[in-house]
Design a protein around this nucleic acid. Structure first.
Lengths: 186, 186
DNA sequence: ACCTGAACACCGTTCAAGT
DNA sequence: ACCTGAACACCGTTCAAGT
């Protein structure tokens, strides 16, 4: 008789990880409490014990996971801002399935804290109007990633075209980022 | 006996209009084929006669409605670009309920045509790399509106703060737009 | 051609019950 | 404390039937 698998206890972390995997691989519309339960080898109802507000809480947690981005304070406010933008873009690109949530849910919890911290970091580094700057940085990252992911869902690209597309997206992003930072300096 | 209301025939247009109203006022998650049928005084199943692919087709149509934006060719490519950005922002702000779809669905149908037309307009007006420029403009508008709408769903603002918020959002948008156009010129 | 009614598979969530 | 099973109201979609 095969040994019974030791029952890894359910946890908020495992639930979110599994939910991200489903959303990214099959789409947000296929992320279902019952399917999520299956992936975790558990009845759907068990999830409510760890996320009391149910699916709404799950959606909030997924948005927060890709949106509560923090970076270390760097030598200049420009370096700190760049690090945040690159880190944010990376995690958003990694989880296209929850991009709609990330761009749309009002920031709260860890995301709101991260925004507050970022304003503080830029202020401490000598940037006036840091709150305005943070809004601009967030808008830039959100817009770039939205257009990039949208376009990756477009018609039949050839494989080498794909590669070029990625490279161009990176170059576009870096070019836009430099221009934005120059604009904020004034 | 009250006169029976003349049965206004169902149509794609009426369906989309009613769907936008539900999504904007109650949220996308409450937009349901059955609720949509109720709003149109019709059984939900009648909708399938006008949107054969059902809810998926409805979602596509809603995204297209706020995303297939076209403007007249203006005197300079800068003016044409500005007009498109302002028009796009306006229609996206008017329909926050479908913003997630607009930012996330790959462009097709009327949206893809509008993008093609815009590239042509800017090219004709003498802008090199018009396709890159159009991507940048779309990213700018999407990001700006996303951050703006996100923030409008935030904590308890006082009424006068609200007004200032709207004004500031307008000013931010115009300032960012000018900076972006200067950047594209080079 | 256009709409309805009944039916089916699936969904989110509750609640009492098990261990 | 943590999970299950049954139940309920609701959902998208089909299909045959009405007019």
């Amino acid at each position: 008789m095969p040994a019974k698998r030791p029952p890894v206890p359910l946890s908020r972390e495992r639930i979110i990880e599994a939910a991200l995997h489903i959303a990214d691989s099959q789409g947000l519309r296929r992320l279902t409490m019952r399917r999520l339960g299956d992936a975790l080898q558990v009845e759907a109802m068990a999830i409510y014990h760890h996320l009391p507000r149910g699916k709404e809480a799950l959606m909030d947690a997924l948005a927060e996971h890709v949106t509560a981005v923090r970076v270390e304070q760097a030598a200049t406010w420009q370096e700190t801002a760049k690090a945040w933008c690159r880190a944010s873009r990376e995690v958003l690109r990694e989880h296209p399935g929850v991009l709609a949530l990330a761009l749309t849910k009002p920031p709260k919890g860890g995301t709101a804290l991260a925004i507050g911290e970022q304003v503080e970091q830029l202020t401490d580094a000598g940037l006036p109007d840091a709150a305005d700057a943070v809004r601009s940085l967030r808008a830039f990252v959100f817009g770039s990633v939205a257009v990039e992911v949208q376009q990756s869902g477009w018609a039949d690209p050839e494989v080498d075209e794909w590669t070029r597309r990625d490279e161009r997206a990176d170059a576009d992003f870096e070019r836009g980022l430099e221009a934005l930072l120059r604009g904020l300096q004034i």
